[in-house]
Amino acid sequence: MRLTETKPDQEGKITAIGGDPHFISRITSIGITESTPFQTVKNDKKMPVLVYLRETLIALNRKDAERIEVTVNE
């Protein structure tokens, strides 16, 4: 599923990141990489997604968040 489809407090792992090299470089340097464990903190309509990973709370605009594939823990 996409990161934008996760619910608050759901935890999981990032499985794939799509997009051009520039985007990948931007998103990786802030700490979002494949197989990084994450927790969705807030995901409101028309608002950036808030995720917690690598001890950091990150706000990610929706368009970019849609390019991130994740699996959530059961």
């Binding site: 931007r26 998103i27 802030i30 950036p48 709370l57 990150i58 706000a59 990610l60 605009n61 970019d64």
Partner: peptide
């Protein structure tokens, strides 16, 4: 255009 990717610091 680059969208917002930023940390919310404590």
């Amino acid at each position: 255009r680059t969208g917002m990717i930023m940390e919310l610091p404590p």
